[in-house]
Write a protein that binds this DNA or RNA. Structure first.
Lengths: 108, 108
DNA sequence: TTTATATTCAACCATTTAGTTGAATACTAT
DNA sequence: ATAGTATTCAACTAAATGGTTGAATATAAA
């Protein structure tokens, strides 16, 4: 696997995959092992393990070893960075949407 | 090209590429033509045109024809959807970060 | 100590992505 | 009408992604 130039590359690439977004969803309530996660998908264990590697490199999850298991949990850093990126555009698109709303209102 | 199952696939895939993120950045101040955008990259015109197609399918930009030119502008919908997705996790990671901060404070 | 469980690694394959080049289309200006 | 400009399309390539299988490793249980 290749290193990313930008962290955002890895974060957004991670989020671009529905299985990986689903993994994040399942981790929201709390820690899960790799096996527990893998059970829910019609994929090989290895495939899920790879998805977790992608998520981990992007700092969207964090793994800690506990005996022979790996306990996976959400990591705030990646999501926070993604949010920070979008932040810069938030004012912009809110303005645009406001103008659009205004336009529709005056046009009825 | 293939249709995406989820809009989020297309949005996050778009954002995963640095050239495309840069295009969005350049569009923040306002409308640009395809040529104006293409000038800034060490890529063929066709390559930039393709990037814009990706962004457009994801509803991150919007194109309108004006004579033989295409005027490209930011579209609020895509960014807003990405933001909405992250929204669900915001409380979660803020809590996590708070706990971490608390922990560090009590440990000094 | 052998066996079972949890996970990763390595090698491989199909599909997608990001780029190229060259031709095609559509509009503008001469 | 002709030439130039703006953009897309089609065909192709290299590299990355998402998946598989089978072997390797590490820990736990019998």
């Amino acid at each position: 696997m290749v290193e990313y130039k930008s962290t955002l590359d890895g974060i957004f690439l991670s989020l671009a995959n529905p299985t990986r977004r689903d993994i994040l969803r399942r981790l929201a309530p709390g820690v899960q092992t790799v096996s527990e996660l893998a059970d829910h998908y019609d994929l090989t264990f290895a495939a899920v393990s790879k998805h977790l590697q992608v998520l981990e490199r992007a700092k969207l999850v964090h793994k800690r070893k506990s005996g022979r298991e790996q306990r996976v949990e959400l990591s705030p850093t990646g999501l926070q960075q993604a949010d920070k990126y979008l932040e810069q555009y938030r004012k912009l698109w809110e303005e645009k949407l406001d103008r659009l709303e205004m336009f529709l209102k005056n046009d009825k």
